[in-house]
Amino acid sequence: MPFVKFWNDQLEFYGGLTLLFKQVIHDTFSGKFYWRLLFDQILQVGVKSLPLVLITAASTGMVMALQFGVGLEKFGGKLYVPKLVALIILREMGPVFTSLMVAARIGAGFASEIGSMVVTQQIDAIRAMGTSPIKRIVIPRVLACLIALPILTASANIVGNLGSLWVGAYELDLDGNFYLLKILSTVTLKDYFSGFFKTFFFALFIALPACYFGLTVTKGTKEVGIATTKAVVVGSIMILVGNYFLSKLFWIIGTVL
């Protein structure tokens, strides 16, 4: 029955993901640590994703400034553009768009690379030689996402705001100094950190499902493609749905503090 199968699949996925996460935590703090593999992955996840993330951030900031500017001008609210755009970028768009771009680029890469290693028995070879695929393959990728994603998001936040400032100054005829001052006087550390802390969760939403889908490939190259698609789709959905609950959580924490 499709309904039963769906729930079985969901249970298997979330159960498998939980076990993988537990093993990652345990193995990170025990035995040999592969620093070189971690640096390789930081290069892949962080440095090589930077152009894509910055282009996305700049265009998002520019489009938001333009749309808010045109829309609010009718009501005489053009002066609120810097405030609105800066808050939206820092709290939501910066972390979410950066994570979605990384999920598409890196999640797909992780799942296809690991899936191909399963199909060509390289994962079996790692195990057969008395070494751990979790330590060599999964942990460097998870940690690289945890380290690189907050840095990428911080860069995206800056470039996104610079993009909106450029549109504000040259398209909306707002004074550049006024625009910058408005951004700096509006945003607080609380705004910044409510977006920043989300990225640690998003990093796990990207890396863990991607590694899980790659490791659970069993039926050959066709399934590698399916695993790659699943990694991107599931990672993106977890980011988008998780963002609402994390926003709510940080809002509650913010009101308590």
Binding site: K32, T120, Q121, Q122, D124, A125, R127, A128, M129, G130, T131
Partner: peptide, 30 residues
């Protein structure tokens, strides 16, 4: 597993490593 060697049908060589690195792998690990 340190005492038992498994020869895979397709070789199962690590394709991101050179032949040298493939051979050095078990020694570097253990």
């Amino acid at each position: 597993r340190k005492k038992v060697a498994y020869i895979f049908q397709g070789g199962a060589l690590f394709d991101s490593m050179t032949v040298f690195e493939n051979l050095a792998y078990p020694i570097r690990e253990h």
